[in-house]
Nucleic acid binder design. Structure first.
Length: 263
DNA sequence: ATGGTTGCAGGGCAA
């Protein structure tokens, strides 16, 4: 059996619902992690997504941020609705659940990592602190020795190969050395970047800014990632970044990334 | 080019 897990920053679920429904009907991923739903839980269009066969779990807030985890397979447990480590953090950026796959439990976290601009400053400090908390949680999860998929908008450009023009992004919070170091520190725990694992040399992007005709000029960056525990990485078959949805009317500035696993 | 785009909310902030 295969398990497909997608991640997509939709930049408002209300503004994006027709696009999201169209894509889910066509692609039918088993699990999809949505970021920037930009709504409270009560206003999330759960029924429309349940009608497509998904179990729906959300961690929303008013106006900003917000994540949702949707699964066609049973959700055994919602393990966390916030990233541990800072009880004063009120931003809705994390949900972690255990999915009942045919092969057994698979843990999926939906991550909306802080943007961090402008850097330096308090927003960048919050980003780096959040990444340290994520590293701590990621380390805990490895102890389960089970398939773990950390899916989301990391707001980190890992390598120069992941940006159309590194000079154009120099000094940005998405590509500063401290951001890249914090991202690779999670990988060094034992996680694999799914895209790099299957297609490491390719230049593919997951985000094109609305401004300046970035899409038409292919001025993109790769910031949406699937990080895999060894038990998930060993089962990875393919990764697809579906850039075609960026050309649609009322597109999000991000496109979905999907991993397919023998799980 | 001190602009440029989108979404939320209904002004300015966040991205």
């Amino acid at each position: 059996m295969t398990l497909s897990v997608a991640s997509w920053n939709v930049n408002s679920i209300k503004a994006r619902l027709p696009n999201v429904l169209d894509w889910l009907k066509a692609e039918r991923p088993d699990v999809i992690c949505l970021q920037e739903i930009k709504t409270v839980d009560e206003a999330f269009p759960a029924m429309e997504l349940e009608d497509l066969g998904y179990n729906v779990k959300t961690v929303g807030q008013k106006s900003y941020n917000g994540v949702a985890l949707l699964s066609r397979l049973p959700i055994e447990e919602v393990a966390l609705t916030a990233l541990p480590g800072d009880p004063d953090d009120e931003q809705a950026r994390y949900i972690e659940a255990v999915i009942s796959a045919k092969s057994g439990p698979v843990r999926v976290a939906c991550i909306y990592l802080p943007n961090g601009n402008p850097a330096p400053g308090p927003k960048y400090d919050y980003k780096l602190a959040w990444m340290q908390r994520l590293r701590t949680r990621a380390a805990e999860l490895l102890a389960f020795e089970e398939p773990v998929i950390l899916a989301g908008d990391y707001n980190v450009i890992p390598r120069d190969a992941d940006v159309h023009d590194p000079a154009a992004w120099e000094g940005d919070a998405l590509t500063l050395p401290a951001s890249r170091d914090a991202f690779s520190a999670i990988k060094w725990l034992g996680y694999s970047d799914a895209f790099e694992q299957v297609d490491g040399r390719a230049h593919q992007y997951t985000f094109w800014d609305y401004q300046g005709g970035a899409w038409n000029k292919n001025h993109g960056i790769r910031i949406d990632h699937l990080l895999l525990s060894p038990q998930a990485a060993d089962r990875l078959k393919s990764v697809t970044i579906d850039s075609s949805v960026r050309a649609k009317e009322k597109a999000s500035d991000h496109v979905p990334i999907t991993g397919v696993f023998d799980l």
